[in-house]
Simulated assay, not measured.
Amino acid sequence: MKSNITLQQLAEYMRNLAYDDFSRKIRWSLGVIHPKTNDGDVGFSGGIWNDPQEATTYMSISFCFSETRGIYNFKSWVNKSEIRWVFGETPTFDEFKQASEKIFIEQEFCTKPMSPYDRTSSKVNATGNKWAKENFDATHN
């Protein structure tokens, strides 16, 4: 079985995520965990994390990679709580990118904490209660 991603593609994606224009204080690592085996496979261990002194919410992703197996042993955490994904521990490259972007970009945990207004607004909107939303909007806008 050949993976749909190369080591170069994975490393470039991780580098671009860490060094984007938003300066999120993200760190990354990708290192060899075992040299070439009899089948010609090289194993890598990698991770993406934010600087805990620069962010209010600590997030990290860890995984293993080989060009034959792809990404495996994928784990992610937000504030010491493991996040489970539909794909389990073996995401495709697209699923890996979506999970990374969900954690490090969409939530913007690294760049700014949510204000009390934003926290309350998201809780009210999560209820799906039309009247609660209207009441919140009427009193806060």
Rank of each mutant, 00 (worst) to 15 (best):
M1P: 12
M1S: 14
I5L: 15
T6K: 04
L7W: 03
A11R: 11
A11Y: 10
A11K: 11
M14N: 07
M14F: 06
R15C: 04
L17F: 05
A18L: 08
D20H: 10
F22H: 08
S23H: 11
S23W: 10
W28A: 05
S29F: 07
V32M: 14
P35W: 09
K36H: 06
T37N: 15
T37A: 14
N38V: 13
D39T: 11
D41I: 15
F44D: 01
S45Y: 01
S45D: 03
I48S: 04
W49M: 10
N50G: 09
D51G: 12
D51W: 07
P52A: 11
P52T: 13
Q53G: 15
E54Y: 10
E54H: 12
T56D: 12
T56A: 12
T57L: 05
T57V: 15
Y58M: 06
Y58I: 14
M59Y: 01
M59N: 06
S60Q: 12
C64S: 07
C64E: 03
F65G: 01
T68G: 05
G70S: 04
Y72L: 00
Y72M: 00
N73K: 07
F74T: 00
K75W: 02
S76Q: 04
S76R: 00
S76W: 00
W77N: 04
K80T: 10
I83P: 00
R84L: 12
W85F: 12
V86F: 06
F87Y: 08
F87I: 01
G88E: 09
G88R: 01
T90R: 07
P91F: 02
T92L: 05
D94K: 05
D94W: 01
D94V: 08
E95W: 00
F96R: 00
F96M: 01
A99H: 05
E101Q: 14
I103P: 03
I103F: 04
I103C: 02
F104N: 02
Q107N: 14
C110V: 02
T111V: 14
T111I: 14
K112E: 06
P113A: 13
P113M: 13
M114T: 05
P116F: 02
P116R: 06
K123G: 02
K123F: 10
K123Q: 14
V124D: 08
A126T: 06
T127K: 12
G128F: 13
N129V: 06
A132M: 15
E134M: 14
N135I: 13
F136K: 09
F136W: 15
D137I: 05
D137Y: 11
D137E: 15
T139G: 10
N141Q: 11
